[in-house]
Amino acid sequence: MAIHEKTLIDPDRILQHDHLVIDGVDVSGSWNTMISPRTLTDYDDGFEKVIQSYAGAENVHRCWQCGSCTNSCTMYAQNVDFNPRYWIYLIRLGLKAELLKDKDIIWQCVSCNKCTNICPKDVRPEGVMKATAHWLEENGLIAKTRSTMFDEEFTEQCIEYGRIEDTEVMVGFFKKSGQPLVQAWIVEFGKRLTKHLPLSQLTKMGMNVVFRPKTKSWGKTGEVLAEYVKAQKEAAHHG
């Protein structure tokens, strides 16, 4: 059968000897190329359920592989390897190893929801992309994305102080994601801010950074909240 999809051949399946002589005939290099078979040997039956347990992916089982999501997808237009239709197929059958081949681009979904708007089965592929990215992160299969780091910083501050302070969140986020605190756009932003905000407001912001006020009588609320969030997460994905 003709190979109609060359990208399906992973480099490690191409077997080739640089120097090979058989029966006195030199068959070095591409003359001896072999491709080892790409046989899938099992399905991970529970995988679809795992992905479904993340918010937004509940409808993944409805997909019938029409390709409308992929075609409409903003990211697919940039990179044809970004293929929500294909990933949904892998998720449904539990072809985890195949899915992991694309682990480094799945998180790139920009949540434009074009897919969700066109899908004839109401699968909501955007939610599935998000869920898959979260699953990859939670299982340490990919590095934490910046948006997750931001979310974490934000949540930590909420839980500790009962409120957030913008500058603190940004500083924490930059530290977590290994970015320099001084960036050209921040400097520019600061300059414009000082130009337009009244002095009293600026002073208040400065004080907040230094003294970190808590919400009144926050007390143990933070701890309780943290417990609750943890329990919810565990119940959702491991219950």
């Binding site: 109609h4 999809e5 990208t7 592989q65 029409c66 390709g67 409308s68 992929t70 075609n71 697919y76 044809v80 293929n83 239709r85 294909y86």
Partner: peptide, 11 residues
């Protein structure tokens, strides 16, 4: 006509 040829995995 625009779409995804799902068997070729190409637009």
């Amino acid at each position: 006509v625009k779409g995804e040829d799902t068997l070729v995995k190409r637009p």
